[in-house]
């Protein structure tokens, strides 16, 4: 049911139809006092180029764990993660570094996501320093570019994170993710700490960036109302298991699992069609 062609806007799709990210039967266990508690069990999902797949669930559902596993921050216990057809489940060292050109992340907390001791420019230059030996002018030019992409002035590079508001900091975090022109960005609750009026700004930014750069998103969120604006497909996690999978339309119109229906109800969407704009 995940192969609906509802996403005809994805003209960037690989000609071969091969997914960009392919997670197969992934399990992650955390070890506490010798006992392995599974955080996610046998989770499969795939993301095509230019597509957004939302991973939805509440705290303890394991949604962030999956994101961290894809990023290599948490080791997988079982299963495989394929990126662009290559097995990257246990990529480490040089391979992980290479992979980090293509896979980036935006996290929830806009306060903690930037090192307070570094200027915005230093933070943005970090991935470039790891991956290339570009000249200073090239680096500065790229920083200006990504700042412009997220709607911030070039002077922002010289300032410290504390001089920005929460929404602006989240823009900077997005800019850092964009520096290497990645093909996939894992977004872990990127707007849930933001105020309503700022949330919309950041959500729109995600949409615009995807249109302009063709990047794919793995969008992790607890809020089905937010997800609806971005995702073509939705995967619902409940206590580590996938309980629902389908295109956004399918899930909103005809959720099968009672948990999904509860989430929808909580998001104020009870199977009803989206209300028209005011």
């Amino acid at each position: 049911m995940t192969t609906t062609d509802a996403t005809d806007t994805t003209d960037t799709t690989d000609a071969t139809g091969r997914p960009l990210l392919d997670v197969r039967g992934l399990s992650v266990s955390y070890h506490r006092r010798g006992k392995g508690t599974p955080a996610i069990r046998d989770v499969s999902l795939d993301i095509r180029p230019g597509e957004t797949v939302a991973l939805v669930g509440e705290s303890g559902s394991g949604k962030s764990t999956l994101g961290r596993a894809v990023l290599g921050l948490t080791p997988a216990t079982r299963g495989t993660i394929l990126f662009d057809g290559q097995d990257v489940t246990h990529a480490a060292g040089a391979r992980r570094r290479e992979l980090s050109k293509s896979v980036q992340a935006v996290f929830q907390d806009p306060n903690g996501s930037l090192n307070p001791a570094l200027t915005v420019g230093q933070t943005l230059a970090e991935p470039l320093l790891v991956h290339s030996r570009d000249e200073r002018s090239v680096v500065l030019e790229r920083i200006r570019e990504v700042l412009a992409l997220v709607g911030l002035p070039g002077e922002a590079a010289g300032r410290y994170p504390r001089q920005f508001s929460g929404g602006q900091r989240q823009r900077i975090a997005i800019a850092r993710a964009l520096v290497m022109s990645p093909r996939l960005i894992v977004c872990d609750e990127p707007v849930s700490a933001l105020d309503l009026s700022v949330q919309a700004q950041v959500l729109n930014l995600f949409t615009t960036l995807q249109r302009e750069t063709g990047v794919s998103y793995l969008f992790i969120s607890h809020d089905l109302a937010v997800v609806r604006h971005l995702a073509q497909r939705i995967v619902v996690l409940y206590r580590g298991d996938v309980v629902e999978k389908g295109t956004t339309e399918e899930v909103y119109a005809d959720a099968r699992h009672p948990y999904t229906r509860r989430l929808l109800a909580a998001a104020g969407i009870e199977g009803a069609p989206a209300p028209s704009a005011r």
Binding site: S165, G166, G167, Q168, L196, S197, V198, Q199, A200, Q201, L203, N204, T207, T208, D223, A225, V226, R228, H229, A267, G268, I269, A274, P275, S276, A277, R278
Partner: peptide
């Protein structure tokens, strides 16, 4: 503020925003 609420905003078009903070 109400218009910027993703719950109430229309899908498929940019969500109305309030500039600034």
């Amino acid at each position: 503020l109400l218009a910027a609420n993703p719950r109430l905003a229309a899908v498929g078009e940019p969500i109305p925003t309030i500039p600034g903070t």
